[in-house]
Amino acid sequence: MFLGHFGVAFATKPLQPRVSLGTLFLATQLADLLWPTLLLLGVERVQIRPGLMAASPFDFIFYPFSHSLLAQLLLGLLLGTIYGLIQRNWRGALLVGLVVPSHWLLDLIVHRPDLPLYLGSSPKLGLGLWNNLPATLALEVGLLALGLWQYARTTRSRNRTGRFALWGLVLFLVAIYLGAAFGPPPTDVSTLAWSSQTLWLTVLLGYWVDANRAPVGNIG
């Protein structure tokens, strides 16, 4: 899952307008933001197996620190607490904390049974939608479109940047996704891990876009 996580961020932004879209990108993608570094450190492991699934060549061998349900619940508690202490916005902190484990729930739909519930000898779950590429594309694009519709109808641009940056961001996300879906798989795990670090750029872009937009009725 990739676009769908951003769809959740877009969709939940109107629930707490004070929370930046960049923060919600950080929360919904926290598992995938941490995972590449854990790969580089040798803490978590993946194998690249072209043809493993129609929509993914990745065999996730070991990744409970970033992708187990327990880890994401704890990460949500941590990120939400940090946000609340810094921003003094505890309703926003609750939202931030809750959307972190939404990553696991969406991944559950697409992954084969490789998602752990906790560290150690955990059962592994996954419904395997990645075995069906058209269905995967429909779900990803559909979730992004729904979230974007919710965000676009509840915010307005403050300036020219806010008008065009949003659609530039969306095109950027779609381009990344389509490149990964239809392009060749990474040649090795190191290349995968380093290239995945670019996901942090989407968080920065989320802050930039949101700074140039405002909730409907709050533009002055």
Rank of each mutant, 00 (worst) to 15 (best):
D59N: 11
L146V: 12
L144S: 04
L127N: 09
M1G: 00
T154Q: 12
P184V: 05
L39Y: 15
L38I: 05
G168L: 10
L166D: 02
H5W: 10
F164I: 06
Q16W: 11
T198Q: 07
V203A: 07
F25V: 03
K124L: 08
V170Q: 00
G126L: 04
G84M: 10
L40Y: 11
L125P: 08
N132C: 00
Q150W: 11
S102Y: 13
Y151G: 02
G42R: 07
L169W: 08
Q16H: 12
W167R: 00
A55G: 01
T12G: 02
L73T: 06
R156H: 01
E140C: 02
A11K: 03
T155P: 04
L137N: 09
S122Q: 14
L98I: 15
P14N: 03
F58D: 13
W208V: 05
Y207H: 13
L41K: 15
Y207Q: 05
A71V: 07
L75V: 00
E140L: 03
G162P: 11
L171S: 04
F25W: 08
L148F: 09
V174S: 02
R153Q: 14
W104R: 01
H5V: 08
F62C: 02
M53T: 13
A152I: 06
V189H: 10
L73Y: 09
Q29G: 10
S56H: 15
N132F: 02
F164V: 08
D32P: 05
T155N: 05
V96Y: 05
F60T: 10
D210M: 02
E44M: 09
A31R: 06
I82V: 14
L33N: 03
A55Y: 01
S121C: 01
L38H: 08
P123Q: 11
L106Q: 07
F6A: 02
T154M: 04
R112I: 10
L26M: 05
L108N: 13
L79I: 01
L98C: 14
L133M: 10
R49Y: 15
L26C: 04
Y118I: 00
H67L: 03
W194V: 15
D59R: 13
H67D: 07
S190D: 09
G147A: 12
A31T: 12
L171W: 04
I61K: 03
L143M: 14
S102N: 13
W130Q: 04
L26K: 05
Q47I: 07
G206S: 07
